[in-house]
């Protein structure tokens, strides 16, 4: 297994954000994380990426425990994450944003020249090539989301955690985004964990889905199983069925 989440608990003061989360992600898999707002999905990403420490439990990446590592160390191991609320380096050019990822992260390309070359390639993959020289702050929302993806890709990850990269996009942009992700996944040999509110996208992309509800894991299975799981339907859609 590439990534194992073992009995993870996270408390903020008295508030329980996550409890007893258990699942693992295999090489090359696309796993979806589903759940309402406040279910703990983003918190889980923060724990994996090292922004917070779990209260209990362990996170194992390629056999190595990463609970107590710093975000930059975790990035160097090959885990990349994007932010739901985008965090571009607004004052730098789009290319510089991506190049920084290539210079650090797991790739650690030493020379600026090679890093920019690699970054331009990634910008082509995410269809932002035309904007390479523009200030990142001048992009549209769809552009920001792609830039998040490009920055994450540039670090040379084995696994990439995508936090609602499609939220707020138009249906057409969602379709484009899915195809970009799928292309990149194949090209860079990635494992993907994706949080998404756009249900159709999640169902289409993922081989397996984990459902969180109020910090607990209530279901795990293929998209088909999940869409018919009575617990999920009850938690998600209420009692209407």
């Amino acid at each position: 297994m590439l990534l194992e989440i073992n009995d993870i608990h996270k408390k903020f003061g008295g508030l329980v954000a996550l409890q007893g989360i258990n699942f693992s992600v295999g090489y090359g898999e696309t796993l979806g994380l589903m759940g309402a707002n406040g279910a703990g999905k983003t918190t889980l990403f923060s724990l994996i990426a090292g922004h917070q420490e779990p209260t209990l439990g362990s996170i194992i990446f390629e056999g190595q425990k990463i609970n107590r590592m710093r975000p930059d160390q975790i990035s160097a191991l090959g885990i990349a994450r994007t932010y739901q609320i985008v965090r571009p380096f607004r004052g730098l050019s789009v290319l510089e944003n991506v190049t920084t990822g290539a210079l650090y992260g797991a790739h650690k390309i030493r020379s600026i020249k090679n890093a920019s070359k690699f970054s331009r390639e990634i910008l082509e993959d995410v269809e932002l090539k035309d904007r390479a020289e523009d200030l990142a702050g001048s992009l549209t929302l769809a552009g920001f989301k792609r830039l998040e993806l490009a920055k994450a890709l540039a670090t040379g990850p084995k696994i990439i955690l995508l936090d609602e990269v499609m939220a707020g996009l138009t249906p057409r942009e969602v379709n484009e985004a899915i195809s970009i992700i799928e292309t990149c996944k194949r090209k860079y040999n990635l494992t993907v964990v994706v949080i998404e509110h756009v249900m159709k996208a999640l169902m289409r992309m993922c081989e397996r889905i984990v459902v969180l509800h109020h910090g607990e894991m209530i279901a795990e299975g293929t998209p088909g199983q999940i869409s018919e799981d009575s617990v999920v339907i009850k938690a998600y859609l209420g009692e209407q069925n």
């Binding site: 990426a49 922004h51 710093r70 975000p71 930059d72 160390q73 990035s75 160097a76 990349a80 994450r81 932010y83 965090r87 571009p88 380096f89 607004r90 004052g91 730098l92 510089e96 944003n97 190049t99 920084t100 990822g101 210079l103 650090y104 992260g105 797991a106 650690k108 600026i112 920055k151 994450a152 540039a154 670090t155």
Partner: peptide
């Protein structure tokens, strides 16, 4: 490049591996 990314957003910089 690392320094300038810290200027723009320190946490995001750390996320992409900048120590």
């Amino acid at each position: 490049a690392g320094l300038r990314s810290i200027r723009e957003d320190e946490e995001a910089a750390e996320t992409i591996g900048v120590p």
